[in-house]
């Protein structure tokens, strides 16, 4: 009887995993099949032509990569410093709980809200206009809470013995953090950073009003230029495309490229973590 019950639960868990995997693969396959018609080397390296009914999505790929880079360059140092403060220096427990709560709330805020925030602050108030910079910063704020939380977890996972060993040699708190805690926590921090890049690359709403344009003929030349971006390109083709017979396959093709890009970024994170964990086992 006990054994039977165990078996039933085991099968239920098994099915749950299978369903999850099946969905992942169907998504990839469906998107690939629908976009098959347009996928080619030229689709990746070319510019859009003839009212976006032909040609490639090169500027959107570049735009998305640039936006994600700016976001991470802004959010990573800020997030790591904030996490160090929260883990190692903050002493007021009430304040700490409020900050953590706010951070979690921020992590759960719908991304379109960040878009509106970016519009009113970066675009209007700071006068950056609809630009690479505004969009990158907006995305940076979007991924900031995720990075703070992941970095905090990485710092907390550093065994106490290492800190004690450092203190016992006469190290100050900052020397211990810099010399021992951060080097040990770095695989976790980098993983969170790369996952943050992936998240930033895939978002539509935060850049819709702050950075993206549906069509430009040239690549951005400065931080204050508008850019094309993959998610917004898909959105534009599906909502404003006049020729569905051309636009819909391009949208699917773009979605496939975006999907592969995000998966590749996640894969890099996994590889980095694997290598660093192996080099720094304890």
């Amino acid at each position: 009887m006990k054994l039977l019950r165990q078996k039933v639960w085991f099968i239920i868990f098994h099915i749950a995993v299978l369903i999850g995997i099946v969905f992942l693969f169907t998504i990839i396959v469906v998107i690939m099949l629908n976009g098959m018609k347009v996928l080619s080397i030229e689709f990746i390296t070319g510019f859009p032509r003839k009212g976006m009914t032909e040609g490639g999505i090169f500027p959107a790929i570049i735009g998305t990569l640039l936006l994600a880079m700016i976001a991470i360059c802004f959010a990573l140092p800020l997030g790591v410093f904030a996490a160090i403060y929260l883990c190692e220096y903050a002493e007021n427990r009430l304040l700490l709980r409020i900050i953590r709560g706010a951070n979690n709330a921020l992590a759960g805020t719908p991304s379109v809200v960040f878009g509106l925030f970016g519009l009113s602050v970066f675009v209007k108030l700071f006068g950056f206009g609809v630009s690479l910079l505004s969009g990158g910063l907006t995305l940076g704020i979007l991924i900031l809470p995720v990075i703070i939380r992941a970095t905090e977890e990485a710092i907390r996972a550093v065994p106490h013995e290492f800190r004690y060993a450092s203190y016992a040699l006469g190290a100050t708190k900052w020397q211990t953090i810099r010399g021992t805690v951060l080097p040990v926590a770095i695989p976790g921090i980098l993983t969170s950073a790369i996952l943050g890049i992936g998240r930033a690359a895939g978002e539509t709403a935060p850049i819709l009003f702050t950075a993206a344009t549906f069509y430009t003929r040239r690549l951005p030349r400065s931080l204050f230029d508008e850019v094309m971006a993959l998610p917004v390109h898909i959105y534009g083709l599906m909502t404003e495309g006049m020729y569905p017979q051309y636009h819909v396959p391009i949208a699917y093709g773009t979605a496939f490229v975006l999907l592969m890009l995000v998966l590749a970024i996640n894969l890099i994170a996994i590889i980095i973590r694997y290598h660093m964990r192996r080099a720094k086992r304890w």
Binding site: P159, E161, F162, Y164, A165, S166, A168, T180, P183, V184, K280, R281, W282
Partner: peptide, 9 residues
């Protein structure tokens, strides 16, 4: 210390 605790360096 009680348990050897070299740094992961």
């Amino acid at each position: 210390f009680q348990k050897p605790n070299p740094f992961p360096k």
